[in-house]
Design a protein around this nucleic acid. Structure first.
Length: 407
RNA sequence: GGAGGGAUGGCAGAGCGGACGAAUGCGUCGGUCUUGAAAACCGUUGUGCCUUCGGGCACCGUGGGUUCGAAUCCCACUCCCUCCGCCA
């Protein structure tokens, strides 16, 4: 949610920023709805003031009050309607992009920030992760449908070591480890901006009115919902580990082979609450941690900055890390870190006490520290001519097997 | 799943339908006193919205209802606690 005062006081720059996300007209509508709402607010407040009495009214006054009551009912109904329209628009209006985000509307318009690491070269026919073994897609599909996958044996051990690798680093950096619920209420989905816009991509448990989260970002953002944080506690950094669920509704036919795009996967997520003054710096810090984690596994990657029109509703700015996928011969997204500024925090009403300045809305950020997708890049990158896979030492130290593949 | 009890300010805890945005205590912050601190005393202390900046309005778990008027009465829901049953 944006700060409505910004829309009233300086609609020009805000409108220009929102235009880059294709939401300029939405802002115009909102400003109109806000004007209407304010006019009705004044009228209702005035009528209510007239109903206020000290002590018992005389019978003449009662008749008069009854008349006011009727008028008030009408005005209140009008106000409720106006408030609803205003709230709907406010809910749908996306976070304006940061000024240094590139123009554009699609993935192709993203700006490549840098490419790091040497892409692996192979003197033999490259196998993809499915051929390298351990991913049981057929049985996953039989059990649950397409885009569900079993990871088995040594591969599963490797995957767990990868989560542990990321979590250990994060805890070492002062992040608090959190194992969150994955079923949440509608409120949390709205608060984080996944609803109403992303509704088609979310699994809903109708019977219990709960939603399965597509990332632990939802639960971590909801962690301090409605709270007032102390300045001394900021930045508050959390590392969440959870299973993530996504319907992939818009992705029919895309990435159908293998475990690259699945309905259920696991992820280690960073989530930070901070002050507005610090959030840009925190964003770069989260990106740096992601890069360090990727580098630590020896993967080749590039960093891209997502174009304004390709950003989700919540993000003001987003960096993705794309790892080199040998079987696809291209970089594919393995992390995503966003500065959601005050957008989620305002929806979730998370504030902090800032001395003389009083209560202020915090900024929130999130970023991927590890997902099952990394596993794909890893096994493909470390494959050997005989179809086995070497495992980096950092992971072996955390319980990963010495290697995978044909025994 | 069954049976009870509860939800009021940072916390504890009052609150005959009008004087209640709310007693009191603790805590907070400021001051007096003190070499300093403690104690004591004095004062202060919720949030949001609108504003012609005088002020006005809303909020006592949430949503409805009764009434000229609801923290207070009625209904529904949510959450928490206790007991029973079931359960990783």
């Amino acid at each position: 949610m944006i700060d409505i005062r910004l829309a009233r006081e300086a609609p020009g720059p805000l409108r220009a920023a929102l235009a880059r996300k294709g939401a300029a007209e939405l802002l115009d509508e909102l400003i109109g709805a806000d004007d209407a709402w304010r006019a009705l607010t004044g009228r209702v407040d005035e009528l209510r003031a007239r109903t206020k009495l000290k002590g018992k009214p005389s019978s003449g006054q009662v008749a008069e009050l009854q008349a006011v009551k009727e008028e008030l009912h009408e005005a209140e109904a009008a106000l409720a309607g106006a408030a609803q329209r205003r709230a709907d628009l406010l809910n749908r209006l996306p976070n304006p992009p940061a000024p240094d985000v590139p123009d554009g509307v699609s993935e192709e318009d993203a700006l490549e920030v840098r490419a790091v690491g040497e892409r692996p070269r192979f003197e033999f026919a490259v196998k993809d992760h499915v051929e390298l073994g351990g991913f049981d897609l057929d049985r996953g599909a039989r059990l649950s449908g397409s885009r569900f996958v079993y990871r088995r044996g040594a591969l599963a051990m490797l995957e767990l070591a990868m989560y542990r690798y990321a979590l250990d680093r994060l805890v070492g950096l002062g992040f608090e480890l959190v194992l969150p619920p994955v079923l949440v209420r509608e409120e949390a989905m709205y608060g984080t901006g996944f609803l109403p816009t992303e509704e088609v991509n979310i699994y809903k448990v109708e019977r219990d009115e709960l939603y399965l989260t597509g990332t632990s970002e939802v639960a971590l953002a909801g962690l301090h919902q409605g709270e007032v944080l102390e300045l001394d506690d900021l930045p508050a950094r959390y590392a969440g580990y959870s299973t993530c669920f996504r319907r992939e509704a818009g992705a029919a036919g895309r990435d159908t082979r293998g475990a690259f795009r699945v309905h259920q996967f696991d992820k280690v997520e960073m989530f930070v609450y901070t002050t507005p003054e610090r959030s840009a710096e925190e964003h770069e810090a989260i990106l740096a941690i992601e890069e360090e984690l990727v580098q630590g596994l020896g993967l080749a990657y590039r960093v891209v900055c997502t174009a304004a029109g390709d950003l989700g509703p919540s993000a003001a700015k987003k960096y993705d890390i794309e790892a080199w996928m040998p079987s696809q011969e291209r970089y594919r997204e393995i992390t995503s870190c966003s500065n959601t500024t005050d957008y989620q925090a305002r929806r979730l009403n998370v504030r902090f006490r800032d001395g003389e300045r009083g209560l202020r809305v915090v900024h929130t950020l999130n970023g991927t520290a590890m997902t099952a997708r990394w596993l794909i890049a890893l096994v493909e990158t470390y494959q050997q001519p005989d179809g086995s896979v070497a495992v980096p030492e950092v992971l072996r130290l955390l319980g990963a097997p010495a290697g995978l593949g044909p025994s």
